[in-house]
Amino acid sequence: MKLFKIFKNGIIDENPVLVQLVGLCSVLAVTTTALNGLSMGLAVTAVLLGSNIVISLLRNVIPDKIRIPAFIVVIATFVTLLEMFLNAYLVSVYRALGIFLPLIVVNCTILARAESFASKNKLVPSIVDGLGMGLGFAFAVTVLGAVRELFGSGTILGGTDFVINVFGDAYQPAGVFVAPAGAFILLGIFIAVFNVVINRKKAKN
């Protein structure tokens, strides 16, 4: 039961993107399509899971004073591994994420979980926390990507074999949604909507 709570915590109550507002650079940059958003979300989940596992196992070995550099080395190692893996097996994803792939190192979500959770908890809760936070991140970026794609290019699932042209060929895409400005404004609206939903739920209880 407690594990489920940790998991749900990451996805809803403390969603890294919509509630904690961390790691927003990659959220805004790669969400031009749902597919890109999902790739980024899964990449972050993979790194988060790996770093949470290692840091949780090493939590009694790492001296307190140098813990932050130690965490960063662990995270950077996983990011480098992921980079090599994607470059070798999934080149299209590697290209789509571009500079934001190495930048997962400085995604504050991961360091924040290392510092506030994995370094203080046992292995199993840390794995669940990594999964929950990672999937919470993935959920937010995928939805944001889907909305931007829908209005900005008029498609659903663009970049895959199942592209659907929602509004037909005559649709003039609203470029602002794909442009940086649309990303900022949409994310702002998303967070506001999430706030309203969460507050209603709290008021009900």
Partner: peptide, 15 residues
Amino acid sequence: KALQGVPIALVAAGL
């Protein structure tokens, strides 16, 4: 109320 803080800052950043 829902837009206070970061959300409105994001909208401003978008503009």
